[in-house]
Design a protein around this nucleic acid. Sequence first.
DNA 1: TATTGATACTTAACGTCGTTCATAATTGCA
DNA 2: TGCAATTATGAACGACGTTAAGTATCAATA
Lengths: 208, 208
Amino acid sequence: MGIAERKEREKEDVRRQILDAAHDLFETQGYENVTMRAVADAIEYSPATIYLHFASKDALVEALCFEDFGRLSAAMNRAPLPRNPVDRIRALGRAYAAFGLANPNHYRFMFMTAGDWKKHANEVDSPPARSYAVLRQAVVEAIDQGFFAKNDVDLVSQILWSAIHGVVSLVITFKPEQFPRAPPRPGLVEASIEATLQGLLVGREDKA
Amino acid sequence: MGIAERKEREKEDVRRQILDAAHDLFETQGYENVTMRAVADAIEYSPATIYLHFASKDALVEALCFEDFGRLSAAMNRAPLPRNPVDRIRALGRAYAAFGLANPNHYRFMFMTAGDWKKHANEVDSPPARSYAVLRQAVVEAIDQGFFAKNDVDLVSQILWSAIHGVVSLVITFKPEQFPRAPPRPGLVEASIEATLQGLLVGREDKA
DNA sequence: TATTGATACTTAACGTCGTTCATAATTGCA
DNA sequence: TGCAATTATGAACGACGTTAAGTATCAATA
């Protein structure tokens, strides 16, 4: 039955080509410029062919975003995360921000647009769910070990997530010169994480 | 010269009709569903007529957003703001969040999309600039009066802005059931403001 | 009053997009 | 060799933002 397998491989290959072409367009030109026709041109197929592999443009972009976020997750799990939960939250925040700022179009699609795809956002393997799970675990430990006050774990996790998301999304949305009054200060990401952490810690100086 | 004035009034009237129709569509159905054709239908003019009053769809949406944000600014300046700068920051954050959550489409267009209009974001009377200015003033006072440590005023302002923006934009983007693991906890906005403030205050218990 | 000139407005179209569908080509299998 | 299924395509649909060319309206002028 090598034939079915070869066909499988060929089909998978076209799918890869589509994803790669779309990825390049998406990364460099953003969502609106990922045109089904442009993708088709890039891989020298007709636009209709894409629909044999992806149900819609959104499904295609979702697929490539999931892939890239998966790469982030993998890289983050491979890196040695601090044992101390507070230090870990710091490290996670930095990594999260770095990825978002390095991949603004991915980030925008995943975390800043409505989109039907978010029906899957809940599922355990979706990028938001995976990122959130790691953070949440650190928060559990931070509370257990007395760094944070006893509190709703998800409330604390959401505070932290929204804080770092706020920085990332603002910087993605406004070009430096479009910031009101002053461009984003250097160290804003760091300072933002730090302020939020400090606000959550129970005994400040000695614990941080 | 009553004739020119009447014509002026009539022109202004059509402009108003366009803005109102677009406003309704925008508020209830969001940016993509504000179609030039739909607006034209609503006011019983041809689509081309809109272009006699607005250079583009984006210019139209920008105009109505500016109007509504102006209403916010006005309301906020009319309300009595606490003299204590820290309390004032709290109040500002609450008002900002309330407006954003009540007008998600406005908020999304203004603070969560790229858009050419942001060339004007810098100008002193733009909604971002106006909101930011009020916050910044409170931060200046908070530092002067020793509530916050001496620091770059804009850095601190950006920390606060991004924190509250993070909450608002997350809640706007994800429906409750789409949140990973747990829907936004009640009091998230409050807790987020509080955590950030606490993180910035110099002597916690006694000053807050 | 008849003519002019500007203004407001519309009709029709252009080019783009995502998407679909009928049809053709290819390919493994009986 | 003929059949069935898969893969690919060309052409089209309907919707979008936008524009150019043409028509109607009406105050101002001769």
